[in-house]
């Protein structure tokens, strides 16, 4: 449904070189630290910035050649920006109804009531939570096949995040849809994504399905002495700690079986991001 092939974007001190694929009926997560290139990747996909190299294919078409009808099949949440803050939701509804042929006015209004989004209040006066809910409601209001969601849960409390993720799960109940989502809250992605890409300094450094990460990836906590005698061929990253090293492996079973004295913890996205960001690749 979506394919990025060596998409490049150069800024003064940043270089993006990103390849990824989003398949139908799958939820793909893009994770990385702040400034890793997530938003740049999303903007490139949506044609908001010009790319310096590579290609982007959406619905098997060059992204630059998408028709307006094709754009109606893409639902978007940007980390910054939604309908103008000087509009209220009622006015937004009339705009969306004119822009999207499949916009479901009744359902959207019902959802606004359900999520306690005021219809008459200016959007600029919304709280972070209200704004986040509105963004996602808009993205899912016209039956788009592909959702591109950049930090849709940012600034939300646990309850609100669960509500939004439930909304997305409902959305994925319909066949033929796909989601590309970024979030800095790993638990959101762990419980929702089928596939994960990890981006670091503009490069995709890891691509695995979520189950593999949770089942086979592990964090080893080793002293310097233990590290000296460790088989490092199956280690991916390491980070220096006061006690020695924290290492990431994609074969935790191997280390659990062969080094029973080692502390091997279950892989978590948070740990992976931290070790990648602060540590070094092996």
């Amino acid at each position: 449904m979506l394919k990025l092939d060596h998409v490049e974007k150069n800024y003064n001190d940043f270089h993006l070189n990103c390849s990824l694929e989003v398949h139908t009926d799958m939820v793909t997560g893009l994770i990385g630290a702040n400034g890793a290139g997530k938003s740049t990747t999303f903007k490139a996909i949506l044609g908001l910035i010009n790319i310096d190299g590579g290609s982007i294919t959406i619905f098997d078409k060059d992204a630059r050649k998408l028709t307006l009808e094709d754009k109606e099949d893409i639902g978007v949440v940007l980390s910054e920006g939604t309908l103008s803050g000087y509009l209220n939701v009622k006015q937004g509804i009339s705009i969306l109804a004119s822009m999207y042929r499949r916009f479901d006015r009744e359902r959207f209004t019902e959802q606004c009531q359900r999520f306690q989004i005021p219809l008459d209040k200016l959007i600029k006066d919304f709280s972070t939570g209200m704004r986040a809910k509105l963004k996602l409601l808009i993205a899912t209001s016209y039956g788009a096949k592909l959702l591109i969601l950049d930090e849709p849960t940012a600034g939300l409390d646990v309850m609100a995040r669960e509500e939004l993720l439930d909304m997305l799960r409902d959305y994925m109940e319909t066949e033929g849809r796909a989601v590309l989502i970024s979030s800095h809250i790993s638990t959101d992605l762990e419980g929702f994504c089928d596939d994960i890409y990890m981006i670091h300094k503009g490069e995709i450094v890891l691509h695995e399905d979520m189950d593999t990460i949770l089942d086979t990836y592990g964090i080893l906590k080793v002293s310097e002495e233990q590290y000296k005698h460790l088989d490092t061929s199956l280690l991916l990253y390491r980070r220096k700690e006061s006690f020695g090293y924290k290492c990431v492996t994609g074969q935790k079973e191997y280390y659990m079986e062969n080094y029973p004295d080692l502390v091997v913890e279950k892989g978590s996205i948070d740990e992976l991001v931290t070790i990648m960001e602060k540590g070094e690749a092996l």
Binding site: L68, K71, L78, E80, G81, S84, G85, Y86, M99
Partner: peptide
């Protein structure tokens, strides 16, 4: 000016308009 306020122009450009 209002289009540019709070990056709403970015969202506008993702809508089905050129």
């Amino acid at each position: 000016t209002y289009d540019e306020f709070d990056h709403s122009i970015s969202f506008l450009m993702t809508m089905p308009i050129s």
